[in-house]
Lab assay of single mutants.
Amino acid sequence: MEVRTIKVFTTVDNINLHTQVVDMSMTYGQQFGPTYLDGADVTKIKPHNSHEGKTFYVLPNDDTLRVEAFEYYHTTDPSFLGRYMSALNHTKKWKYPQVNGLTSIKWADNNCYLATALLTLQQIELKFNPPALQDAYYRARAGEAANFCALILAYCNKTVGELGDVRETMSYLFQHANLDSCKRVLNVVCKTCGQQQTTLKGVEAVMYMGTLSYEQFKKGVQIPCTCGKQATKYLVQQESPFVMMSAPPAQYELKHGTFTCASEYTGNYQCGHYKHITSKETLYCIDGALLTKSSEYKGPITDVFYKENSYTTTIK
């Protein structure tokens, strides 16, 4: 009895394709271990004539594949690729409408935090270190965002349907971005203890939790000093293409032309909904596939993004 075979390709990165001759009487799992086709788990399936010449994702289970996976995804987590594939199996079914010149995501599976993050990423200057993220990001900007969303979920250790947080998501993504040249110098002034300067680099240099107003941050924000008295913390120097200011959701007025974009969060910790506000020729609110415009805006804002380049204080 002759062994019926077909020729397929296996890959971990969709760049390096490895030619395989597979036995049609055995499952993919018996031949390769966990195997995925377009995100779908085909591990328990036997090869079919229609699979001839198709590319299958496999887990990096030998040295060659491990090197290829690390170079593309910059992670050695053995569960990463499987999590990416199972997320992709959902995100490829989502709709990605162009809204006001940006790629958004039609609401499904509690994905409003991903839509808000995706919209924000198209408006701030950011370059990702893992080629996987950078490639998928370019495709997302062009309207094909399924891979990018699935990668975000995998890097953030999230599953489809789980509630997510924009600030946490951005923080994970910033860790995989090139923020080497970003720098922030802060000064804390206390009447009792004097003053202390701190220099922050990388992710810490672009994120701040405690106030939404970048102007206020430049002037000074009140913080408790270690001595128990009130101290003032203010920005001395900022070198970065953008800054992200966050605070627990509270009524906040966004003035046209003073910011790049913002995240609105309605609801409580267990259950809520994100919308995205962007400042173009007027203010726009993007909620999944829905767009509304207004000249002014007041609502429960939790993150505001500002364009920056270089700032030095005039406070002496």
Rank of each mutant, 00 (worst) to 15 (best):
F70K: 12
L37I: 10
K46E: 13
T5H: 14
L290C: 12
N157D: 10
M209L: 09
E253G: 00
N157Y: 08
Y96I: 04
S171F: 15
I6F: 10
E2C: 15
G288W: 02
I315E: 15
I6T: 12
C156W: 08
E162Y: 07
P130V: 09
F305D: 09
D135Y: 07
V22S: 09
Y137A: 05
K201T: 14
Y36E: 11
H276L: 02
I301Y: 01
A145P: 11
T91M: 04
K201F: 14
Q270M: 13
D63W: 07
A262M: 04
L121P: 05
Q196S: 14
D41T: 11
N49W: 15
K219V: 09
K191S: 14
H18W: 02
P249C: 04
F70Q: 09
Q31G: 11
A250C: 12
V67C: 15
T55N: 09
S294R: 12
D41R: 07
C190A: 01
T169D: 06
T199Y: 08
G161E: 08
S181C: 12
W107F: 02
E162G: 15
K7W: 10
V8Q: 01
A177F: 00
L81S: 09
Q230K: 12
S79M: 15
I315G: 14
K298G: 00
F9K: 14
Y137F: 12
E204C: 00
K158F: 04
S246C: 06
F128A: 03
G267M: 10
C225V: 03
V236W: 11
G257Y: 01
F259M: 00
A205Q: 02
M170H: 05
G53W: 12
G101K: 07
N178L: 05
G53T: 09
A69E: 08
R66W: 07
S294G: 05
G272A: 01
N129R: 15
M245R: 01
T192L: 09
A87M: 00
Q251K: 06
Q222G: 09
P47I: 03
D63I: 07
V185T: 09
A150E: 09
L290M: 15
R167C: 01
H48N: 14
N110H: 07
E264A: 08
S240I: 00
H51T: 04
V22A: 13
T226C: 13
A146Y: 05
E215K: 08
I152A: 08
Y155T: 01
V22F: 02
K7N: 12
D180H: 09
Y28N: 10
Y138Q: 15
Y155W: 05
G220P: 07
L121V: 11
K316W: 15
S263C: 09
S279I: 01
E204T: 07
T35K: 04
R184E: 03
D109Q: 08
G29V: 06
H176V: 05
Q195K: 11
D23E: 13
G220I: 03
Y96L: 01
Y113Q: 05
V8W: 03
T198Y: 15
A146W: 08
T258K: 08
Y36N: 01
A142H: 14
E52D: 13
C271S: 12
L119P: 00
S263P: 05
L254D: 01
T75Y: 09
T64K: 12
P60A: 13
C285G: 04
K201P: 07
L200K: 09
N89A: 12
W107G: 02
N89Q: 14
Y269L: 13
G228R: 03
T116N: 10
P249E: 00
L119K: 08
Y113F: 07
Y73P: 07
Q270K: 09
S25P: 05
G143A: 05
E168A: 05
H51D: 14
G272I: 00
M207D: 04
I105F: 01
S86F: 13
V189G: 07
K54S: 13
G220H: 00
W94K: 08
K280A: 12
Y172D: 11
N147M: 09
T27M: 12
N178C: 11
Y84A: 04
L133F: 02
I277P: 06
C112P: 11
I152T: 08
G257R: 05
E144N: 09
S181D: 15
K293L: 04
L179W: 02
N110G: 06
S294H: 15
Q20F: 09
Q134N: 08
E253N: 09
H256R: 11
T169I: 10
M26P: 08
Q31T: 12
N100C: 15
A140L: 13
T11G: 07
V243P: 01
L121F: 08
G82I: 13
L173G: 04
V188Y: 03
T43L: 09
Y265K: 04
P47Q: 06
S263H: 15
A146D: 00
K158R: 09
M24L: 13
K93Q: 09
T159W: 06
M207S: 05
T302E: 00
L200Y: 15
E239F: 07
S50I: 11
Q237E: 09
P47S: 06
I315R: 15
D303T: 02
R83C: 08
K280N: 10
S79C: 10
L119D: 06
E144M: 06
H176S: 04
L291H: 13
H74L: 10
D41N: 12
Q270R: 09
H276R: 01
R66P: 05
T76W: 10
G210I: 10
V22G: 04
L65R: 09
L186I: 15
I286A: 00
H90G: 13
V166P: 06
P249W: 00
K280G: 13
A247D: 03
Y265W: 01
I223T: 14
A247F: 04
N110P: 09
L121G: 02
K255Y: 03
R167F: 04
Y73N: 05
T64D: 15
D62V: 06
T64I: 12
N61W: 10
F305K: 04
Y172I: 15
V12S: 07
R167M: 00
R66G: 12
N157F: 11
Y306K: 00
P248Y: 00
Y84D: 01
Y96G: 08
V206Q: 00
N111P: 09
L153D: 03
V236Q: 01
R4A: 14
L37M: 11
T313I: 09
Y96A: 06
R4L: 13
I152N: 02
Y172V: 13
A142L: 13
H18N: 12
N89Y: 15
T260S: 06
P224N: 13
C261V: 04
A87Y: 02
S171N: 14
I301S: 04
D13A: 05
P300Y: 15
F217E: 06
N129G: 08
Y252E: 07
A40I: 09
H256Y: 12
Y208V: 04
G143N: 05
G299S: 09
K275W: 00
N61L: 14
L114S: 05
Q175N: 08
K95G: 09
T64Y: 13
V221H: 13
T159V: 14
V188H: 05
M245F: 14
G194K: 00
S86N: 14
C271L: 09
F148N: 02
K307Q: 11
L200M: 08
K7H: 14
C190K: 02
Q30K: 14
Y234I: 09
T35N: 10
Q196V: 09
C261P: 00
T43K: 09
F56R: 06
N187G: 08
V160Q: 05
I6G: 09
K127S: 12
L121S: 04
A146F: 04
A87L: 06
K92W: 09
K46V: 14
S79A: 14
I315W: 15
C112A: 04
T27I: 11
N16I: 13
Q20P: 08
L200C: 10
L212N: 01
D303N: 02
V206T: 06
K191I: 03
G29K: 08
A136D: 02
E52R: 10
D23Y: 13
K233Q: 11
T302K: 01
Q238W: 00
A154K: 00
G39E: 11
M244K: 07
V99R: 12
E168D: 01
R83K: 13
K127Q: 15
S86A: 14
G53K: 12
T211N: 10
N110K: 05
A117D: 02
K255F: 06
E253A: 11
W107N: 03
T27V: 14
M209T: 14
Q251H: 15
Y84H: 09
D165E: 05
L179H: 03
M170R: 02
Y265H: 01
I6R: 11
